[in-house]
Amino acid sequence: MSAGLILRYVIIAIIYIILFRIVRIMYLDLKGIRSDDERKDITYALEVIDVPGSIGIARGSLYPVHKLTSIGRKADNSITLNDPYVSSYHAQIYIENDGLFIKDLNSTNGTIKNGIRIKGVERLQSGDVIEIGRTSFKVVE
């Protein structure tokens, strides 16, 4: 009889241990996403290496690449290039699984990586040169 009594509490205790562990994982999961972002935020940056004076960006300035960086002519992009050769939403640069990728958003004049116009999504590496409109960026780490 007393064994049954103990088992009764043991069963409930184990159920709560399971619950506690699941909650803990979910907490780590929420925390993990945040710290992931922080770590990846500063991994890559874009250095402006060539730009026409009319755009209003200084040569040599650095743009850190966030988990999603958008480039275009409209003001709500992460990087705004006030250049008629650039489409409203021209391209996106994002980090996925520790790799850096660039995606052309069907821009009119295209996105050029190391002298070749890209189709869709391409992987970027440190040292690659991207041309968007009349502006050139270099990927730095």
Binding site: G4, L7, I11, I14, I15, I18, R21, I22, I25
Partner: peptide
Amino acid sequence: MEKYEKSILKAIYTVTMLMFLVL
């Protein structure tokens, strides 16, 4: 993460078998 998952599953199996054992 996987380690935790396994331990949760093990605890689930344990408690299930314990309850069925009581029954």
